[in-house]
């Protein structure tokens, strides 16, 4: 199963990178979302996976009974998910704003629109 998941992660990365390399802003945005999905999954998987037992201590016990899923990567991924949610929302707003100010989705047009203010002239 780990190998299958690793391939899935690879697939997600491939899709994300392909999207990020497009000229269209909205595609880049989707690429970034996929990238963070892939990364979250990577953290989750590479620290090892187990089925079923969630890291919740049962009502009658004081310590977590074995076997259990590693709680730390879960906490990390949760943090990462929330952070990337914030970043995504911001990036979305930025894309929208950029689109509104340049009226194009094409990054190359954005470049030429900003000529004189951007890069070498």
């Amino acid at each position: 199963m780990e190998i299958i998941l690793a391939i899935m992660i690879g697939g997600l990365y491939a899709a994300a990178v392909y999207m990020i390399l497009r000229r269209s802003l909205v595609k880049i945005l989707i690429g970034i979302v996929l990238l963070s999905q892939a990364t979250n999954m990577l953290i989750f998987v590479s620290s090892g996976i187990t089925r079923g037992n969630s890291p919740v201590i049962k009502a009658e016990e004081t310590v977590l009974s074995q076997p259990h899923a590693d709680p730390l990567p879960q906490a990390l991924v949760l943090t990462a998910i929330v952070i990337s949610f914030g970043l995504t929302a911001f990036a979305l707003a930025l894309t929208y704003r950029a689109y509104k100010s340049v009226k194009t989705d094409d990054l190359d047009k954005l470049r030429s629109a900003a000529m004189g203010g951007e890069e070498n002239v």
Partner: peptide, 19 residues
């Protein structure tokens, strides 16, 4: 501030840093 040049700069900045 949202000026054009700023947008173009910010986009590159944001995307690359997200990577």
């Amino acid at each position: 501030g949202g000026e054009r040049a700023q947008m173009a700069g910010a986009l590159k900045y944001v995307v690359i840093n997200l990577i």
